[in-house]
Computed example of a mutant assay.
Amino acid sequence: MRLYLASTSPARRALLAQTGIEPVLVAPGVDEDAAVARVASALGRDLTGPELVAMLAVEKAAAVADGAVTVDGGPVDGFVFGGDSAFEVDGVLYGKPHDPAVARDRWRQMLAAGGGTLWSGHCVIDRRRALDPADGGPGGAWRAGTVPPVRRVDTPGGGPLGLAGSVTDVAPGGSGMVAADDRVVAVDSAVLTFADDMSPEEIDAYVATGEPLEVAGAFTIDGRAAAYITRIDGAPSAVVGLSLPVLRSMLLRGFGIAWHDLWASEPRGTVDIHT
Rank of each mutant, 00 (worst) to 15 (best):
V191Y: 02
T117H: 06
I125L: 11
G137D: 09
G210L: 07
F79V: 09
A14I: 11
A264Y: 02
F87Q: 00
T270Q: 09
W107G: 01
L131N: 00
A141E: 15
S120L: 11
V124S: 08
V170I: 04
G91T: 13
I232D: 08
D154Y: 09
A103N: 09
V150W: 02
A190G: 05
A42E: 14
G173T: 07
G44S: 06
R128G: 06
S189Y: 05
M177K: 01
W263V: 13
P148G: 06
G74E: 15
S85P: 01
R143W: 13
G82F: 06
F194H: 08
A179D: 10
S7R: 01
E201A: 14
T117K: 05
T146W: 13
V80A: 06
D188Y: 04
T168A: 15
E88W: 00
P172S: 01
P10D: 14
H274R: 14
S120N: 11
G210F: 05
R104N: 01
G74K: 15
R253T: 15
V76N: 05
R106W: 12
R151V: 10
A216M: 04
G82A: 03
P133N: 00
A144K: 11
G241P: 01
I273T: 12
H260T: 15
A113S: 15
E201P: 00
G159V: 12
I229S: 03
V239L: 02
D196L: 07
D197F: 07
V184S: 13
R268S: 14
D105R: 11
A101G: 08
A101M: 00
A164Y: 05
L47G: 06
T117C: 07
M1K: 10
R248L: 12
I203D: 05
G174P: 02
R2Q: 08
G145M: 02
V167T: 10
F219Y: 10
T193L: 11
V89T: 12
D90A: 15
D99A: 13
V150Q: 11
V58W: 03
G115P: 11
S175H: 02
G269Q: 10
G67N: 12
A134R: 15
V26D: 03
W263P: 00
L161C: 09
V184P: 07
D90S: 14
A225H: 09
G78Q: 04
A14S: 11
A264K: 04
R38E: 10
V170M: 03
A113M: 07
S199P: 01
A235T: 04
G162D: 11
G256L: 08
M110P: 00
G91W: 08
L244T: 05
I203Q: 01
A179I: 08
A54T: 06
A238R: 06
D90N: 14
P133D: 08
A113W: 10
T8Q: 14
D84P: 11
R127M: 08
R248N: 14
A179P: 00
P133C: 09
F219C: 03
A65E: 00
A62Q: 02
E266Q: 13
F79L: 12
P245H: 12
R108T: 10
V191R: 12
M198S: 03
R108K: 09
E202A: 09
D66N: 15
R151H: 13
P10F: 09
D99I: 11
D66Y: 14
